[in-house]
Design a protein around this nucleic acid. Structure first.
Lengths: 149, 149
DNA sequence: CACCAATCAGTTGTGCACAATTGAATTGGG
DNA sequence: CCCAATTCAATTGTGCACAACTGATTGGTG
């Protein structure tokens, strides 16, 4: 298969392609549960942190309400979470995992190990990659939804 | 800003976030020319390789016709390329850059250096990252040479 | 030649991303 | 206290991604 030399040298294209390839590795594990990858990320945060707000989800995932609002509405329709307008500050919306949503965690199980292996990288290389990605992202200007420095 | 420890450890989320962050670095450079990032990738291939087919664009970019067909139609509307059904094999569609499309290359200039710098990574780290990403995607190892954004 | 499987681009439908805007709630300065 | 600026979620509109499908074309096999 031909490789475009020009593209081959672009870090950005490598990121773009690798990200989509990795997401497609998750798909067969998530599809049976009716979850998309971004929805799975939201559920992971709920499993890990418990009830949170739309604002904090956006900060953590670097997504704005334009993306999150419809996504959360779909997760609510599926019965995985409940949205509730805050009482103290009525601008914020709290997201609570439901029992159904919590049960998903054990149903899906731990995907990270299987998928780390699927990359074919060693533990050391995965750690290197992780560090490089985090640093590359950390220096970048504020992503959408983020707080302005 | 809070970081979800769970997400923080996911290579896949790091890829997902880094890819979007990097794309958003390109946006201010491409917006003035009316290009999106995937459209820019297509134009780069045309600039580098000349006329090509929808099939080969898909193989190079790892995108199917469901994504490429409307994208190419928009680039054609903008006058950057011309679509032409093949004569030898009438199933394939050839994509030709127009003069307008070719002129874009000099108008936009070389973004890779500026954007590689924006990551804050050293040349060595960029090369490492490039190699790791390429391997994670399950493709052949990177040939030696300069690494650009 | 006849026919069937594979190839190719396009279409449809769903779900992100993200810019821009809206409108309600809150905060802070005077 | 009052009002302007800010915060927050939602909505609208555009453009990817990708699965599933369609329909035309081609290639291989009997």
């Amino acid at each position: 298969m031909r490789e475009s030399t020009a593209l081959d040298r672009m870090i950005c294209f490598q990121l773009y392609a690798a990200s989509r390839a990795m997401t497609s590795l998750y798909r067969p594990h998530l599809d049976p549960h009716g979850l998309t990858y971004p929805q799975y990320l939201v559920m992971r945060i709920l499993w890990h942190d418990g009830p949170t707000t739309v604002r904090d989800l956006g900060r953590t995932l670097r997504l704005d309400s334009g993306t999150l609002s419809p996504l959360l509405k779909r997760l609510e329709t599926q019965g995985h979470l409940r949205r509730e307008r805050g009482t103290h500050d009525e601008r914020t919306v709290w997201i609570h995992p439901t029992e159904t949503g919590t049960r998903l965690q054990t149903d899906i199980g731990d995907l990270s190990h299987a998928l780390a292996c699927a990359t074919g990288l060693t533990t050391d290389e995965l750690h290197q990659l992780h560090t490089l990605l985090h640093r590359a992202r950390g220096t970048a200007p504020t992503p959408p939804g983020g707080t302005t420095a």
